[in-house]
Simulated scan of single mutants.
Amino acid sequence: MTAGDGAAVLVEDRDDRTVLRLNRPDVRNAIDQQMVDELHAACTRLEQRPRVALIVGEGTTFAAGADIAQLRERRRDDALRGINSGIFDRIRRLPMPTIALIDGYALGGGAELAYACDFRLGTPSTRIGNPEPGLGILAAAGAGWRLAELVGEPVAKEILLAGRVLGADEALAVHLLNEVVEPGDLETAGHRWADRIAAQAPLAIRLTKSLFHAPRDAHPLIDDIAQAVLFETDDKHDRMTAFLERRKKD
């Protein structure tokens, strides 16, 4: 575990994964500038040494949104800097998959952080929504376009325009959550998903994630190039050889 005094993000490195703990439980893990800065630092580590990342909130809340006291004082130039949109887009572009472990509220910026992840696991108390218009602003850190990709336009508009907050069962039904478990099992479930990802060929996972988010007009050329790279790897040869040997024994 790496953390200084008063760290807003605790970083726990393991051999094949990293756990990022949002560490402002006294304010329900509200996302402030310090947390953004520390998430950027964590992204730098994950870009330099790619691995699966799990993001979890300390306490009983994933992240209740941006720090309203800071947000109230931000002006036009702050919005144009893309403080939250920049870090969430960087998280989405991390080389390896990311898993959000959502207990309690994921609202506003907290929801947008979850949307930026590849997988989202929740508990029965999970609540996800974007109440920004009620505060006189909009969900500008990805929800305005990413949410429709995740749940479809009708549900996205209910959340973004009518203030609907999804409970765990509703979020699971529209596939915004991949799984719902009891709070005490949340991190175990997250590591189970990480185990499933880690069992795959790492470079194949990295290239598949990159292809998934590539512009449509880049296909199929980049698919063929990525496959050509993988065809030359020892990992591909070894895994296929093991598969054929297992089949001979069946």
Results as ranks from 00 to 15, higher is better:
E12V: 00
L20T: 00
F119I: 08
M96Q: 10
C117L: 06
G57W: 12
P131Y: 10
L39N: 09
G109L: 13
R72C: 05
I128V: 07
P131T: 09
T126E: 06
Q70K: 10
H40F: 13
I83Y: 01
V56L: 03
R90M: 00
V27I: 11
L54E: 07
R127T: 05
P97F: 08
R127H: 06
D103Y: 07
T98H: 02
M96D: 02
R74Y: 04
N84D: 12
G134A: 15
L54Y: 06
R49T: 12
N29G: 03
V56S: 05
C43N: 09
A114I: 10
C117M: 13
D15S: 05
T18N: 00
A100F: 04
T126A: 09
D13W: 02
D16I: 02
E47S: 05
R74E: 10
L80A: 10
D37S: 07
P133W: 14
C117G: 03
C43L: 11
P133E: 13
L20Y: 02
A69P: 05
I87F: 08
C117K: 09
A106R: 06
E12C: 01
A64T: 13
C117F: 06
D67L: 13
R81Q: 14
L22C: 11
A30V: 08
A64V: 14
G104Q: 07
